[in-house]
Write a protein that binds this DNA or RNA. Structure first.
Length: 302
DNA sequence: CCTGGCACCTGCAAGC
DNA sequence: TGCTTGCAGGTGCCAG
């Protein structure tokens, strides 16, 4: 792992977790946002026992069926919390791991049971300290699963996922091998979790800009030098974002909370028409692989 | 196997 | 003001 990545252990509460009024905070759950969440929750939840489960929207649980899910979760203690790609994994005592993917709009709130419930809670875990872990997911794109951590019961969702971009095993040669025979455009490939884990639309755009590579380049046309730049850019962008506790978008809010601050340091994403931080040219937005894509037309030539 | 396109779902913003 | 329309994007499924 990158040195700064392991050294950055901090356990600040997010505004949501601290129980402040929620306002409208929305963080895009890519790798840095999930990493931030996992570190925060680890400091709060390890050792806690789950005493009950509510399923206001049972379809959020993808496996097993709701009755078995509740049966296997209730009474278990959280031993550790980790991350793989965009998945959070709660290691429970016994054989099972509770897996949560936030989809696009999912958030985890840690609140007192007496706190009023938010509008789109899909799964709620009651804890033995009087608090609740609430999975709020307005658009229902998220998923919750429970299975044996051995993967014998059912393949774990990250079985075919690519390498962790901040691990040592992810080097430039690995990235080059993953891209060398691919004819697809670079941007959609970076969003493909089997190439490298954890990138979403924000950090794919940010990494391509930092590497000065056009998102519509065919993957197999990248030179060795360009691949090295892209590899370094992916790690730099993700490490920076983790240091900033992720990117948080808020359409409106009426208080100063402790949300992530990386949205203020984005180079291209969401900055259509604004100046490229490198050359000053206006950032443009196009659609690549069906996704909004932000880039500098001068720094990122085809 | 790979690629590209679309569906899923809902809140929000833009347009009339 | 209030309605309609389109957009946002992670993932899974489908056809070619």
């Amino acid at each position: 792992m990158l040195a700064q990545y392991t050294r950055l252990r901090c356990f600040q509460l997010t505004s949501e977790m601290a129980g402040q009024p929620a306002g409208k905070i929305h963080s895009m759950p890519e790798l840095p946002e999930v990493e931030t969440m996992v570190r925060d929750l680890e400091g709060q939840m390890v050792g806690r026992r789950i005493t009950g489960v509510d399923l206001p929207f049972a379809a959020e649980v993808k496996y097993p069926d709701p009755l078995e899910f509740r049966d296997r979760v209730v009474g278990r203690t959280v031993n550790a919390i980790s991350r793989r790609g965009k998945y959070a994994a709660f290691q429970l005592d016994g054989a099972d791991v509770l897996i949560i993917h936030r989809g696009m709009t999912g958030s985890l709130f840690l609140r007192n049971s007496s706190d009023p419930q938010e509008a789109h809670i899909r799964v709620l875990f009651r804890l033995d300290d009087g608090r609740e872990l609430r999975f709020n997911d307005p658009r229902k794109f998220g998923s919750v699963l429970l299975m044996e951590r051995s993967g014998l019961e059912r393949p774990l969702p990250w079985l075919r996922m690519g390498p962790e971009p901040l691990d040592d095993e992810f080097d430039a040669a690995t990235l080059r091998r993953a891209l060398a025979r691919r004819t697809a455009l670079l941007k959609p490939l970076l969003l493909n979790q089997s190439v490298v884990a954890g990138l979403g639309n924000i950090y794919a755009d940010e990494a391509l800009h930092l590497a000065r590579i056009h998102p519509q380049r065919r993957a197999d046309t990248l030179s060795t030098h360009e691949t090295k730049r892209l590899h370094a850019a992916i790690r730099t962008v993700l490490a920076e974002a983790i240091a900033g506790r992720g990117t948080t978008f808020s359409s409106y809010r009426d208080y100063e909370g402790r949300e992530g601050d990386f949205q203020h340091r984005l180079r291209v994403f969401g900055r259509t028409g604004a100046a490229c931080p490198r050359c000053g040219t206006a950032i443009i937005k196009l659609v690549v692989g069906g996704r909004g894509t932000h880039m500098c037309p001068r720094c990122q030539k085809v």
